[in-house]
Simulated scan of single mutants.
Amino acid sequence: MGRKRLITDSYPVVKRREDPTGHSKGELVPELGEEPQPLSADVDEAALELLRQFDLARQYGPCTGITRLQRWHRAQKMGLEPPLEVRQLLQAHLEDPRYQHSLWHLYPL
Results as ranks from 00 to 15, higher is better:
61 G>L: 09
7 I>N: 13
52 R>V: 08
54 F>V: 05
93 H>N: 15
33 G>A: 08
21 T>F: 12
20 P>C: 02
33 G>F: 00
71 R>P: 08
78 M>T: 00
32 L>F: 07
90 L>I: 08
11 Y>S: 11
19 D>T: 03
3 R>S: 15
67 T>R: 13
57 A>V: 00
101 H>A: 00
33 G>Y: 01
89 L>S: 08
105 H>G: 06
86 V>N: 09
21 T>L: 12
62 P>W: 05
103 L>S: 04
56 L>E: 15
62 P>H: 07
88 Q>R: 13
90 L>P: 10
95 E>L: 10
24 S>R: 12
26 G>W: 09
70 Q>C: 05
8 T>I: 10
33 G>N: 09
57 A>C: 05
65 G>V: 08
60 Y>H: 09
52 R>N: 14
12 P>S: 12
59 Q>I: 12
3 R>Q: 14
21 T>G: 11
76 Q>E: 06
41 A>Y: 05
96 D>Y: 04
68 R>A: 06
37 Q>V: 01
16 R>A: 04
104 W>L: 13
63 C>M: 06
76 Q>M: 03
97 P>I: 08
43 V>W: 03
42 D>E: 02
56 L>D: 10
11 Y>V: 13
15 K>R: 14
72 W>R: 00
86 V>D: 06
7 I>E: 13
57 A>F: 06
61 G>I: 07
39 L>F: 03
43 V>N: 06
101 H>I: 00
19 D>A: 11
65 G>Y: 10
47 A>Q: 15
11 Y>Q: 11
55 D>F: 07
70 Q>I: 08
48 L>Y: 04
93 H>Y: 11
65 G>C: 03
55 D>I: 02
51 L>N: 01
63 C>E: 03
58 R>I: 04
26 G>F: 09
100 Q>V: 04
14 V>P: 04
36 P>Y: 07
94 L>C: 03
47 A>D: 11
30 P>N: 00
6 L>F: 07
38 P>N: 11
54 F>G: 01
80 L>R: 10
5 R>G: 07
94 L>K: 12
95 E>C: 06
56 L>V: 01
30 P>R: 00
66 I>N: 02
38 P>L: 08
103 L>R: 11
27 E>F: 13
27 E>I: 08
39 L>S: 05
90 L>K: 12
76 Q>I: 00
79 G>E: 04
54 F>C: 02
87 R>E: 15
50 L>R: 05
99 Y>M: 03
7 I>R: 13
30 P>G: 00
49 E>S: 12
97 P>Y: 01
